[in-house]
Simulated assay, not measured.
Amino acid sequence: MPTVMENCTQVTRFLLLGLTEQEGLQGILFVLFLLIYSATLIGNLGMITLIHTNPQLHKPMYFFLSVLSFIDSSFSTVDTPRLLESFLISSQSISLAGCMVQMALMTLHGTAECLLLAIMAYDRFTAICHPLLYHTIMSQRLCVLLVVATYTASVANSALLTRYIFKLPYCGPNVINHYFCDIPPVLHLASADTKEVEAIVFSSSALIILFTLTIILVSYAYILVTICRMNSLEAQSKAFSTCASHLTVICLFYGTTTFMYAQPNSPNSMDQNKVMSIFYTVAIPMLNPLIYSLRNKDVKAALKRRCSGKLPL
């Protein structure tokens, strides 16, 4: 691992350029993203409250959904307030420690979302392929252990990557071409060879993506076979409907992140990454509760009861 070079004055603060420098757009974007962030918090925190106050939603599937809502609201809160601030202030300053914490939290929540989506796929596999054993297999104890394991692995991965990235010397320049401390633009500023760290970041990301996608694809392969073997069209429709929301969320999350990180390096790659980051850090956390509430009969029924005053506050 490279050490700090001689005569290197370590940077103590970074400047974030923000999403755009076009002053004409900043006011409009501020209002737009403020509305999106407000909808994200209301939607996800509302989903958590709805699930925990409705006994009919006290099932493993909805327990994991409440955890996903917590991750999404936290994920968005890590960077969206600074994004909003960037529309009001031309260039933002962030300390080295603040940049480190922001990157660590973004990595933690991104990893946690990948792992949780895989767990939710396994939950659907168990419910559809082994319905009689579902409540025995997906016990409350196992559900809690899976969430604890998710956060333990996410914290470990986040700590590992953040440690290696910020062990590099940063002697200047200190301008980050992004609206938050994302890994690629920060590594771009390192005053040393970053190949080893880039290899570690790539290996960690590839391992998590391949591991979670394998679980998701295998789970849904078994689910598809089981559904095709069902004799009742009503049973097939019900099975498809329970998976539709989860599959939509998976396609959105993995589709945007894969498109972003599969792009070849180019002079415009940093600007493209900023735009694509909006989708998985701002848009998707807002869309997830909408997808689950609009496509899930149990959630819609619970929401109607809440609106009619039949559920306790």
Rank of each mutant, 00 (worst) to 15 (best):
Q10S: 13
V11D: 15
R13W: 04
L17V: 15
G18R: 15
T20I: 09
E21D: 15
Q22R: 10
E23K: 15
G24I: 04
L25T: 14
V31D: 11
Y37M: 10
Y37D: 12
T40W: 05
G43A: 06
G43R: 13
N44G: 11
N44F: 06
G46C: 09
I51T: 09
L57T: 04
S69E: 15
D72Y: 04
D72N: 14
S73Q: 05
F75R: 05
F75H: 05
D79R: 13
P81W: 03
F87S: 11
F87G: 12
S91A: 09
Q92N: 15
I94C: 13
M100A: 12
M106Y: 12
G110E: 06
L115N: 03
L117G: 00
A118R: 04
F125H: 01
I128N: 11
M138V: 00
V144E: 13
V147C: 12
A149N: 07
T152E: 07
T152A: 12
V155P: 01
S158K: 03
I165E: 07
F166V: 04
P169Q: 05
C171F: 03
I183G: 01
A199G: 11
I200E: 10
V201A: 12
V201R: 02
I208H: 08
T212Q: 12
I216H: 01
E234R: 02
S237K: 01
A244M: 07
A244G: 02
S245P: 02
F253L: 06
G255Y: 11
T256N: 07
F259T: 14
Y261E: 01
Q263A: 10
P264Y: 00
N268T: 14
S269L: 14
V275T: 09
M276G: 05
I278V: 10
Y280I: 10
T281G: 06
T281R: 14
V282W: 05
I284D: 09
M286E: 12
M286T: 04
N288E: 13
L290Y: 11
I291A: 08
K297T: 06
K300Q: 07
C307A: 08
K310T: 00
